[in-house]
Each structure stands twice: as C-alpha cells, then as structure tokens.
C-alpha cells in the first residue's frame, strides 16, 4: 500500500480521499498472512482443504481445526484470524438453523453465503467495530448441486468453481486452474473423462503419479488438492503444518464430513513423494 495511514485508517467508518477503506484493506493483509485454504467444486461433490500451520510442536494433533460444519450439507473454511473464523462459523450455524426453522428446508449455499456476507459487511460500516480478518470459503451441496463461495473481509462474495485464499493463494489458484481448465461445462460422464485427463496432466507435470482413474472424481480431487497444497506450501520456512480436508459427495452421503483418514493419508503420502521427486529433478 502506497499511502499508509495519513489518518484515514483509524476507523472503518471513514473513507480515504480516494474512496478506500483502509481498515478493510488491512483485514485483507491478515488473510494474506494466513495458511492457504482451498475449495474445489467437482461434478459430483465439493472439497475444502486447508493447510494448518503449527506454531508449536506442543500442539495436540488435529486441534484448532479451521474447517467447520455449518449444517449437514455445508462446510466452511477460513483463512485469517482463527477466532474470527470460529465466531463467523457460529453465526453461520445460527443462520442455517434459522432458515430451517423458517422454511423447513435446508438452506442453499448461495443464500447462506449471502447472509454471512451481510453480517461481514456490517462490520465495515461502524466506527466501533473492526472488519473480520478472514476470508471464508463456503462449500456445500444443495438442490442446485455442489456450490462454492468465497466471502472476503469487505463482505463481497463471489461464486467459484475453485478458489484459494491465504498465503500462496496465487500459486494454488494456478494449480486449480490447471485442474479445472480441461473440465469446463461438462456432464458427469464427460467430467469423469475430463478429470481423468486433468489428473494425468497434473501427474505428468509433477511426477509420474500412479493415480487410479477408477475412483470417483471427488476422491481424485482430494489427491489433487493435497498436491496443490503441498505445492504452494513454502517449504523454505520449514514450518510444520497439518493437512485438513473435508468434502460433500456421494461417498459422504452428501453430508459435510471429514475426508476419511486413510484416504487423506494416502493422498498426503503421494503428494509428499511427488514433491520430493520434483525437488530431485530441480
């Protein structure tokens, strides 16, 4: 940022002369410093994955998860201040429950994202509050199929086929584009073929991966996601991290659930192996 401060960054209720809200931009900085979170929409399901940086070796394994369940069929991953993420998750669950109470139907991902975004946006309007220091990926499967939205600290939200937020998001997005580039607007049957090709392409790019093509597209995507996360993770910092991944697909009964531990472990192992092989080639 070129013009830091100059008095216009003390309150979110004050614009700078050139029409910017500095507090919102600073909130984005908090997001950019966080571990990456990835969402990937597949033909028959959707996946959320995060890299959870471990700031201490004393942490309990699997603690402080960054992906939360909002409703049976919806999950959300946050990148940024963890506590802000927990608070927004709680609000999202209230919104989803409120929708059910009112309409006796599960909330759609879009409506939920709209409601969350309205809440986030309200924190950009008052001098007494600060904006949320998180970007949120909302992923789920509803009557319209698998959907993915990203809500930013400003309150703006967009729908995505795939999205990445947090540190290293640019590289992650490039990887996701590669995964999705060959898939655009395809039926499930065609999609299986497209994804198979996509996987082969990614595999050849990284290393000779022996990824079975017989698995469902969602399962394959988990592996790709793991690859993407391992790729974008900045290994030079030598920071330990844990991989966290959830999905909504046939295999999980169209419910938001953690990716089975054995599958996650398998994907992680292959990703690490591929990464090491890639480094040897370099």
């Amino acid at each position: 940022m070129s013009s830091i401060g100059t008095g216009y960054d003390l309150s979110v209720s004050t614009y700078s002369p050139d029409g910017r809200l500095f507090q919102v931009e600073y909130a984005n900085k908090a997001v950019e410093a966080a571990g990456v979170a990835v969402g990937l929409r597949c033909t028959d399901g959707i996946i959320l994955g995060v890299e959870r940086l471990l700031h201490s070796k004393l942490l309990v394994k699997g603690a402080n998860r960054r992906i939360q369940s909002v409703d049976e069929h919806i999950g959300m991953a946050t990148a940024g201040l963890l506590a802000d993420g927990k608070h927004l998750g709680s609000r999202a669950r209230d919104e989803a429950a409120n929708f059910r109470e009112t309409y006796n139907a599960p909330v759609t991902v879009q409506v939920l994202s709209d409601r969350i975004s309205g809440y986030v946006q309200a924190y950009t309007c008052y001098g007494s509050v600060r904006p949320f220091g998180i970007s949120t990926l909302v992923a789920g499967a509803d009557k319209t199929g698998p959907r993915l939205f990203c809500i930013e600290p400003s309150g703006v939200f967009y729908g995505y086929r795939a999205c990445a937020v947090g540190k290293g998001r640019a590289l992650a997005r490039t990887e996701l584009e590669k995964v999705l580039a060959k898939e655009g607007g395809v039926s499930v049957r065609e999609g299986v073929m497209e994804v198979a090709r996509m996987l082969s392409g990614l595999a050849s790019y990284l290393a000779p991966l022996a990824i079975s093509l017989s698995r469902s597209t969602a399962v394959e995507s988990v592996k790709n996601d793991v690859l993407a996360i391992h790729l974008v993770h900045d290994d030079n910092q030598d920071k330990a991290f844990e991989l966290e991944m959830t999905w909504v697909c046939e295999e999980s009964g169209m419910k938001h659930a953690a990716v089975p531990a054995d599958l996650l472990a398998e994907a992680e192992e292959k990703a690490k192996a591929a990464l090491e092989e890639g480094m040897e080639e370099d």
Binding site: S69, E72, R100
Partner: peptide, 19 residues
C-alpha cells in the same frame, strides 16, 4: 421432533471442530 432434530444437527456440526 423439530426441536430435537435441530439440537442433534448442531451437535453434529460442532463435532467436526470440537471433537
């Protein structure tokens, strides 16, 4: 039933993060 279902659904959602 509605009340209990809502409670169970919330418990289910929370069980992912707060095991």
């Amino acid at each position: 039933k509605k009340e209990l279902n809502a409670i169970l659904r919330e418990e289910q959602a929370l069980s992912l993060t707060d095991s």
